[in-house]
Design a protein around this nucleic acid. Structure first.
Length: 810
RNA sequence: GCCAUGGUGGCGGAACUGGUAUACGCGCACGACUCAAAAUCGUGUUCCCGUAAGGGAUUGUGGGUUCAAGUCCCACCCAUGGCACCA
């Protein structure tokens, strides 16, 4: 009799063997059928791996293992996004240098990751805070600088007065600091930017070619916000001034009845000098904070300037207003109001008694006076009261009038974007130093490549003061003067950590391990071997959180495109296929340290093993849905593992035809479900099979070999142990994926349901190939069916092969 | 407010091009083993009526199409995620 399956002994045993035999190391040059499978690299925090990591990495590994058994040379690396604020804050609190705490955390996390039993190629790991890595972060900066894609400018930035630091847009929520909830101030500061806006069109158009979730693509499209429209110039009556308005819907321009400019607009500023009412409004508006504006909601405020602008199309004299619902920073800072067909314009017109004209008739044909907001739909509507546009569909009218306005010289067609250039300067310590020095006149100069890595100095305090910690470093100052001359000063800001992660997909392919061979690489000037890059890029499968949709996932695309243009890589898009795992919550709330509801996997892994924990997470529901954490069901997977171990070690001479059919049906199900990341149903199918095997009292050798292989992606340790115990050679993960025989899936007879007037009244067994008439006759004879047919006429009879008979009677 | 996705037993969730709704698991109940408990095994388990056979109801709500609707169409309600005066 076999012993119970003991995960605590079996799992370390196989982990050791995999490591000793380098089972997961990939020869990037020799690999014949490359498949690059990547997960988003974790931040090495002291909190260790949490359930969310397991939920991302475990299933992703099962997918990689499946692809490997399809015969692919699967490369799946792991690394650490190690620069960033948490380590710096920890340093402020404890005085321990981030280099030290990060090294310790990385070590712990590697041990934990190995405990998961994932097939990472550790010989090619990366750590973004290693000089051998950030040398390349700096190199990327220099290349962007060289091509005028990195530049310096003064701009308002988000500044948290309590944390004494600049925050990225994503670190401000509703105008408040994400961490301390203080209200964020807008402060003008000189910062470095990457000119991502230059790539706006490619970033939008490229989305067509990649296999990403539609939702993520939509978010990126919206974030980039490309809009085709026209700038129309309106002359101010009795003045040499003019106001330019951007609009995407010039087709409705015959309905324009007013103009609104932002308080910051030059015309508003000019009027304010002679009109105290306007000046007062502008001053009041500028005092309002982001928060106050939001609290006001959609309530419209404004002030009339006393001036009019002429609509050349209709001759209408439009009053010019100032209102803070128009944003100074967007478009031209002025809009033309078409209250009949725009929600905001309607609200404004209603508040101030401005006429509302109808110029579009909707599908309902209603031409009455407009009394409630009617937003123009892009796909339905006909022009009215619009002179030469009358009767046209709106989209056709839009094209016609744009040409008309442009030809008359009243405006110019233009495309606008919502995307802004990427601010990458951070007044923080723990990041890659920006490789720039300033001459005595204050002009920036790139640090020559031979001086990279431009090392992060260590002689600094971490306490936040509002200026960059690097400014305190004597060593950095001395180093700069020594290399460049007296009076030269270093840049003291570091780079946003998103710069580090924007190109790591290439780094894995060009290194040989943290702190070992990667040191050698840092001596070379090659970014990546073009042959390797061509062979492996783009990444075939990328799995990670949806929260990166408009940050990392845009930045990485931008940097890849730029590197392609510079001639260093050949791929346009870094990630061919992208999948987001769902979020695991605890009692409906996101897990976070501050809420104290983080579930640690360690205790479960210790009790049940990594296989059970991984499988339980996969069994909870669809991978992309996530779910609410509960540990009640984990026992079911534990039982599954124990029972599977037992029954696969019980031999029968031959499986019954029914069990053989079930085995092949299970192969089919797993073959379809695992690559589609439907792990929950694949596991359910294996459970069904297990129930049948137990009824049979065991399994034939041939069947056991199939089942062990089916388990290999989902429960890697259990599968290896099973494979060994049934006499398999080598690692099960190196075996080919089993194939199913479609002939075995067919059965001779089928259970067919019989409905009478839509209600199931009985079941009959029929031969699969029985004729329709025969089956219907048999159905009528079924006792309970017959009862319901008594005294009635069958009007219609339908047979769905092998499924049901539907009888309609009256 | 706008956009997207989704509402199925006590719970997590299955369900192919419309074709026996509730697979699989958890939990629960009863039984076996045990001095007892845990573990394990067996049986049952959508709800209501019925000992049973059987009948009725049921996939957020209300309509519709169809021999047949969780699945398709219309209206509405609710939940989650994203965006939020972007012209």
């Amino acid at each position: 009799m076999q012993q119970a399956y003991d995960a605590s002994a079996v799992e370390p045993k196989w982990q050791k063997k995999w490591e000793e035999l380098k089972a997961y190391e990939v020869d990037l040059k020799k690999a014949k059928d490359p498949y690059y499978s990547m997960v988003m690299w974790p931040y090495p925090s002291g909190d260790k791996l949490h359930v969310g990591h397991w939920y991302n990495f475990g299933p992703a590994d099962s997918y990689s293992r499946f692809m490997r058994m399809q015969g692919k040379d699967v490369f799946t690396p792991m690394g650490f996004d190690a620069f960033g604020l948490p380590a710096e804050n920890y340093a402020v609190k404890t005085g321990i240098h981030p280099t030290e705490s990060i090294a310790k955390n990385v070590e712990t996390m590697i041990a934990q990751l190995k405990r998961m039993g994932c097939m990472y190629d550790w010989s090619k790991s990366e750590n973004s805070s290693a000089p051998s890595y950030y040398k390349w972060t700096q190199w990327v900066f220099l290349k962007l600088f060289e091509h005028d894609l990195a530049f310096r400018k003064k701009q308002d930035v988000n500044f948290c007065p309590k944390c004494q630091t600049v925050l990225a847009n994503e670190q401000c929520q509703d105008g408040k600091c994400e961490r301390c909830e203080s209200e964020v101030e807008q402060k003008p500061m000189t910062q470095w930017f990457f000119r991502i806006t230059k790539y706006a069109d490619r970033l939008v158009d490229g989305l067509e070619s990649i296999d990403w979730p539609e939702k993520t693509k939509t978010m990126q499209r919206h974030w980039i916000g490309r809009k085709h429209g026209i700038n129309i110039v309106y002359e101010v009556k009795g003045s040499a001034d003019s106001i330019t308005c951007f609009t995407t819907r010039p087709d409705t321009n015959f309905g324009a009845t007013f103009i609104v400019v932002a308080p910051e607009h030059a015309f508003a500023q000019k009027v304010a000098k002679e009109n105290p009412e306007v000046a007062g409004y502008i001053q009041a508006a500028s005092k309002k904070s982001e928060l106050e504006r939001q609290e006001e909601g959609r309530k419209k405020t404004g002030v009339f300037t006393g001036h009019y602008a002429v609509n050349n199309l209709s001759g209408y004299e439009m009053p010019i207003w100032v209102s803070d619902f128009v944003l100074g920073g967007f478009g031209t800072g002025a809009v033309v109001g078409v209250p009949g067909h725009d929600l905001r314009d309607f609200e404004f017109a209603e508040t101030f008694g401005i006429p509302v004209l109808r110029v579009v008739v909707g599908p309902d044909g209603d031409t009455s006076k407009i009394t409630k907001p009617e937003q123009v739909q892009e796909d339905a509507g006909t022009m009215v009261n619009s002179d030469f546009l009358d009767g046209m569909e709106i989209m056709a009218a839009k094209e016609k009038i744009m040409d008309h306005i442009a030809a008359k010289g009243w405006g110019e067609k233009i495309t606008t974007y919502r995307l802004r250039d990427w601010s990458i300067s951070r007044q923080r310590y723990w990041g890659a130093p920006i490789p720039i020095v300033y001459d005595p006149e204050g002009n920036p100069h790139p640090i020559p490549e031979e001086h990279l890595p431009w090392l992060l100095p260590t002689d600094v305090e971490f306490k936040p003061t509002g200026t960059a910690p690097l400014a305190q470093s004597k060593e950095l100052k001395v180093r700069t003067e020594k290399l460049f001359g007296k009076g030269w000063t270093p840049e003291v800001d570091t780079m946003d950590t998103f710069v580090c992660s924007s190109f790591y997909q290439f780094m894995y392919l060009s290194t040989e391990g943290v702190g070992t061979k990667s040191e050698a690489r840092s001596q070379k000037s090659d970014f990546i071997d073009p042959k390797i890059e061509k062979k492996w890029m783009p990444v075939d499968m990328y799995i990670g959180g949806a929260e990166h949709a408009c940050m990392h996932l845009i930045y990485a695309r931008f940097v890849t495109m730029a590197l392609k243009d510079f001639g260093f890589v050949q791929c346009e898009e870094p990630f061919k296929k992208l999948v987001h795992q769902g979020i695991i919550t605890n009692q409906g709330a996101k897990m976070s340290k501050s809420k104290g509801n983080v579930v640690s996997p360690d205790a479960f892994v210790e009790r049940h093993g990594a296989d059970v924990f991984r499988m339980y997470l996969m069994f909870m529901g669809p991978f992309t849905d996530g779910g609410d954490w509960s540990d009640t069901g984990i026992k079911g997977i534990d039982r599954f593992v124990q029972r599977m171990w037992k029954v696969l070690n019980k031999r029968v001479d031959q499986c019954s035809p029914q069990v053989r059919a079930k085995v092949h049906a299970t192969v089919k199900k797993c073959t379809e479900d695992i690559p589609a990341l439907r792990f929950n149903t694949a596991i359910a199918a294996l459970m069904e099979l297990l129930n049948d095997l137990e009824k049979q009292g065991g399994i034939a050798q041939e069947g056991a070999e199939i089942v062990a292989r089916l388990l290999a992606p989902l429960a890697p340790h259990l599968a290896e142990e099973l494979w060994e115990s049934i006499g398999g050679q080598g690692f099960v993960i190196d075996q080919p994926w089993p194939e199913f025989d479609p002939a075995l899936l067919k059965t001779d007879s089928a259970t067919v349901a019989v409905q009478v007037n839509g209600k199931v009244r009985g079941q009959i067994e029929v031969a699969t190939d029985a004729a329709e008439a025969e089956v219907i006759a048999q159905a009528k004879e079924e006792p309970n069916v017959a009862k319901h047919l008594e005294g009635k006429q069958v009007r219609k009879a339908i047979y769905v092969k092998g499924r049901l008979v539907s009888l309609v009677v009256s």
